[in-house]
Simulated assay, not measured.
Amino acid sequence: MDTTIPVLGVVAVIALAMGFNYTNGFHDAANAIATSVSTRALTPRVALAMAAVANLFGAFFGTKVAQTIGSGIIEQPQGVNGLWLVAAALVGAIGWNLLTWWFGLPSSSSHALIGGLAGAALVAGVTVKWSVIWEKVVIPMIVSPVVGLVGGYLVMIAIFWLFRRANPGRVTRGFRLAQTASAAAMAFGHGLQDAGKTAGVVLLALNISGLHTSNTVPIWVLLLSAVVISLGTYAGGWRIMRTLGRRIIHLTPPQGFAAETTAASILYVAGLAFGAPISTTHTITASIMGVGATKRLSAVRWGVAGNIVGAWILTFPGAGLVAVVTWYVTAIFR
């Protein structure tokens, strides 16, 4: 076989991975900045620029997440068919991202990618590591929103108690400033998690081709993933931003700070300590719900929340199905 074929195939897959990375950036930009924009702590463009820079730096801390995606989800496939498998998985993830973005639903790019990998692997005859998916995907998928919901509620209660005698106007102004830091922390966590996932797919493609032979993520892969997700973030995901920032609950600056701080903390623990590729979308959405519930349960628009949860449930099989269809459609080229 002509040795240029796998090299060209790797280049094509990396380009496709960066396409997914870009959609991830504008799809999930809302995760980091929707609360800051909705409370008017930051203007949209300033918030997006800040989030893009924080994403860039966060990506360099996502090596554990990258290794989980690169070697922990499926057994390493071989040859050109292996590259087609990865390509089909990426098409599944991109397709789901675009569909949910169109409807303004904050679904998980992470679970779309993992669902795409699992779906493509099943039809390609490659072993799926279900035990790892259960341990590092399914359990965190359930636990992180619960922790976000409870954590957001408790952090907001603590803020109420600490500032119970303070001047309300002064508190609001102070938390508007504090939201700059909490939104940056959230964006850093998004870069750590989501740019790391794309780096993991590139790592998988490099190992399949033999151009790389270890689980160590090359620095150029992290840099490329960081830059592209930052560009996608700066492009903005306005449809989803409206859903997170306004349609679930009308947030105040203290509430926005509480939600962002809670979500960022969960992202750091999951990514840095366990290498678990959790959903930034699930985490921040649940944190917003928890914060909103401190006002009164009826303050949260649970109907909107229900639509979001429906999108969460459908993400894994939906992206997997698109990947399966892509695998069969591209059979004529293999």
Rank of each mutant, 00 (worst) to 15 (best):
P6S: 05
V7N: 13
L8A: 14
G9F: 01
V10R: 00
G19W: 07
G19K: 07
T23V: 13
T23W: 10
F26P: 02
H27C: 11
A41K: 02
T43S: 14
V46Q: 13
L48Y: 06
A49I: 11
N55F: 03
G58E: 04
A66G: 05
Q67R: 15
T68A: 10
G72W: 03
I74H: 09
W84Q: 13
W84N: 14
A88G: 09
A89Q: 11
A89T: 09
N97A: 06
N97L: 07
S109M: 08
L113C: 07
L113Q: 02
G115W: 01
L122C: 04
V126M: 10
V128C: 07
K129N: 13
W134I: 13
V138A: 14
I157K: 13
I159E: 04
W161S: 14
L162G: 08
R165F: 13
R165G: 12
P168W: 10
G169H: 09
R170K: 15
V171H: 10
T172K: 11
T172Y: 12
T172L: 13
A178S: 14
S182Q: 10
S182R: 07
A183G: 12
F188P: 02
H190I: 05
V201W: 03
V201H: 00
V201K: 00
L206W: 02
N207I: 08
S209N: 08
H212S: 08
T216L: 13
I219H: 12
I219E: 14
I219R: 11
S225C: 11
A226N: 07
V227S: 05
V228I: 14
V228W: 04
M241A: 13
R247S: 10
Y268R: 12
F274S: 05
A276D: 00
A276I: 02
P277A: 07
H282K: 11
M289I: 15
A293N: 11
T294W: 05
S298K: 12
V300I: 14
R301L: 10
V304T: 12
V304W: 02
G306K: 15
I308W: 00
G310W: 07
A311R: 00
F316I: 12
G318I: 01
A319Q: 01
V322W: 09
A323T: 01
T326N: 08
W327N: 09
W327R: 12
R334T: 13
